[in-house]
Structures are given as C-alpha cells and as structure tokens.
Design a binder for these strands. Structure first.
Lengths: 119, 119
DNA sequence: CGTGGACATCGACAACGATCAATGTTACCG
DNA sequence: CGGTAACATTGATCGTTGTCGATGTCCACG
C-alpha cells in the first residue's frame, strides 16, 4: 500500500493530527462534579459495609448497635460515616425512642450505578 | 435440588431487641475494600471527565493532548490522573510515536456499576 | 430526680490526595 | 547531531479525610 497520504476526507478543524473524531459529547463539568461527590461518599470500605448491612436486613433498616457490633470501628467513627451517607442521600435516619434507625433510600444506589455506566 | 430455605426463624442470636432479622449476608470486608479502591479511583471530577472524553471518541481512544485541551489542569496533573485510572484498570495505555493513546478497558465501568448496585 | 444507655458532636491528629513547577525521557525533524 | 515537541516523573505544598477520645444530648426507667 503506497502511502499516497491522500486523506482529505474533510478539512478537519481538529487541533492536532493525533486526535480522532468525536462520537458524542463528553460529560459536563458540573455533572462530573456531582457524580464525583456521590462516588466519594461511597468510596470507603466502612461505608460500603454499612450500606450492605442495612440492606441485608429484612426491613432494609438497621440501628447503630447493629453496625458497632459488626464493624471494628469506634462508635463516633460509625456515626461519622452514617452522617456522610445521609448527607449524600443514600441513607435516611429515623429516631425511635433511644435508638436511631438507618434505612436505605430506595433507588439511590441504582441511580449512581446507572449514571456511572453511562459515563 | 435442596432448598436453601433452612432459616431457623426462632431464636436467632440477636444482639439486641432493636435489631431486625437478616434477609441475606452482608458484603465481605475484603470485597468492600476492593470495591472501595475502584470507587476511589472514580471519585474525582477530573478523572470522570477523562473517562467521558475518552469514551466519546469514535474509537474509544484519546491522546493526552485531547485532555489537556479540554481540562483546565496542568499536564503533570492530567498524567497523574491517567496513571490512577490505568492502575485501577479503567484505562489502558498505548504509545505510538510521540503520542500516548489511552483507551477504555471494555466492561470495566459496567462491572463496577453492577457490583455497586448489588451492594 | 438521678442514673445509665444510645447516639451525636467536638477537637485533634495523622495519613492521604490533588495540584503545580521543575526536571527527566523519548521520539521526530531539520 | 542539535533542537523541539509530547509525555512521564519528582518533589513540595496544602487542603481533605478517616480515626479516636472526650464530651454533650436525649430518652427510658427506677
């Protein structure tokens, strides 16, 4: 194949020759920022285990004593993680008597997973 | 086939009265650790934009000059983010001539999304 | 009331991570 | 051969974050 160098398909307005054309638009910066915030709330082993323990219960609900029992972390640390997950919209808090019950926000995890797969 | 419905619904070794029974097992600690590492690599706006820019190209491939053009970050910083994404298994690097081309590892994002939805 | 239990908040500390300037490395070109 | 362009690596800085002990708050129960 002689390298005739004839590739005038279009006069590409490309910045450089190394670049290939785009099939679609990239993610918007503020969208990336929001998704990164959600992922940051999930990107911790303790918080993932908390979410899993909560969702493993039959009523999708667990109290803090369930978590302090299974995680080898101090109670203030677990409270901190719970706060992060609530503020990120993955858990909701309900106080009944002396106990605080945390439950999964339905669809929140699947929403992030869906957005992530679409990146 | 033996039914796995061997749940002794009676007196479970429940720690406290506040706890409800479990429907399934929680995530394993080392599994949570691995997932957290993957999510940590994704939990950054710049890295999400990099992945999006790469996957927006028709051949799922982009060179560094494409990224320095669109991201308002220094070239060393972008190189750092690319290294993180490669080591996490989301991107692969191919050097051709002077240029380095990064391409998506097929299925890597969907795999994390799937695991995340199953937590 | 007062006491104890369940949980949240505060303050501090150590480790991590995102960023950049400077420099190094490699390939292409005259 | 220089020289330049593309990209990686290094070193340093500085904000962020996971963790814990100490303390505070609220509720239940004698």
């Amino acid at each position: 194949m002689t390298s005739t160098q004839t590739l005038p398909l279009t006069d590409i307005t490309q910045a450089d020759a190394c670049s290939s054309p785009l099939a679609r638009a990239a993610i918007a910066p503020d969208h990336a920022d929001a998704l990164a915030r959600s992922l940051k709330a999930l990107a911790d082993p303790a918080r993932l285990r908390i979410l899993s323990i909560v969702s493993a219960h039959t009523d999708q609900e667990a109290c803090v004593c369930d978590l302090t029992d299974q995680l080898t972390l101090s109670q203030p640390t677990i409270s901190h993680h719970l706060k992060v997950l609530v503020e990120a919209g993955f858990l909701s808090r309900a106080k009944r008597g002396t106990w605080s019950y945390y439950s999964l926000v339905p669809g929140s995890l699947n929403a992030v997973a869906g957005v992530l797969a679409a990146v």
